[in-house]
């Protein structure tokens, strides 16, 4: 019986736990330092006059101005924005309607469809990239904006669908019934009653799709042409060559956008919890 041990250790337990907790806290601080130091270095150096990066020579906004003036970067940014905007719009429509249908109706193959929807979310990106590349070449579809947008929508809309589905789960079913009883057609009930209730989920799902599309490298690598190359592709090419102060500035802007995105999503989450 371990009784004597437990009674004696009960007195030591609090101090032991406190020590443990302090150690865990210290470890957490170290890990956060590991996660954030490289990002901080990048942001700091984006303001450095020096081309060589490691010596601090002075403060400048010059690199940011150069990003703005660089036609190649701006072209790639424009491509990324076009792809992400179309992808997000398509994903929101397919995802929201799909989530609603799968929630409202019990299809014969609901389970299989649900599994199929999960596949693009978890499938290795490189397999998705090469299978789509072969698919498009087999059909002699020329690689370009169309192929990139199709590829991006394929892995983005399931995220919207799942986000909306989670929200539908907590929705009162009598809402739609009331609308139908009052004479609304199912489509009107969906548009006027259900969609407004789903707004936070649609918004956060859409933001997720936009961010995923803006950041995607691997699938885009296989499905884009030189004309439709997105920003991550250009950044990948530049980073392979080595350091580039313009890239530091661009990265800092991306990090800023990501922080804004995370804070906004968190805000949405809190709003919907209330």
């Amino acid at each position: 019986m371990p009784t004597p041990v437990s009674s004696s250790s009960r007195f030591q337990l609090p101090s032991g736990l406190k020590l443990m907790n302090a150690a865990l806290g210290g470890w957490t601080v170290l890990v956060f330092a590991f996660l954030y130091l490289p990002i901080a270095v990048l942001v700091i150096y984006s303001f450095n006059t020096s081309r060589l990066n490691i010596v601090w020579e002075g403060f400048t906004f010059d690199w940011y101005a150069r990003v703005w003036q660089d036609t190649r970067l701006m072209r790639a940014l424009q491509n990324s924005l076009i792809v992400a905007t179309v992808t997000t719009t398509a994903s929101v429509v397919i995802g929201t309607v799909g989530a609603w249908l799968l929630h409202r109706y019990r299809y014969r193959f609901s389970h299989a469809i649900q599994t199929l929807i999960a596949v693009p979310m978890i499938m290795p990106e490189i397999v998705m990239g090469i299978s789509l590349l072969i698919f498009f070449t087999t059909l002699s579809v020329e690689l370009g904006f169309f192929t990139v947008i199709v590829a991006h929508t394929t892995f983005c809309f399931p995220f919207v669908l799942v986000a909306v589905q989670a929200r539908l789960h907590g929705l009162d079913p009598s809402l739609e019934e009331a609308a139908l009883d009052l004479g609304a057609t199912p489509i009107r009930a969906f548009w006027l009653v259900i969609v407004p209730c789903l707004k936070p989920a649609i918004l956060s799902g859409g933001l997720m799709a936009f961010t995923l599309s803006m950041d995607e490298l691997i699938v885009t690598f296989f499905t884009s042409s030189a004309q439709s190359a997105t920003l991550p592709l250009l950044v990948f090419g530049m980073a392979k060559v080595g350091l580039n102060p313009m890239l530091n500035a661009l990265s800092a802007l991306f990090i800023l956008a990501t922080v804004a995105f995370v804070l906004f999503t968190e805000h949405l989450r809190r709003m919907s919890r209330r």
Binding site: L243, I255, V262
Partner: peptide, 24 residues
């Protein structure tokens, strides 16, 4: 949790690039 979400959503390409500046 927010502090974990920020690197989670930051492009891995940019986060990898940051290490080049440190390790080269």
């Amino acid at each position: 949790l927010l502090l974990v979400m920020i690197p989670f959503w930051t492009s891995f390409l940019i986060r990898t690039y940051a290490w080049i500046a440190i390790l080269k």
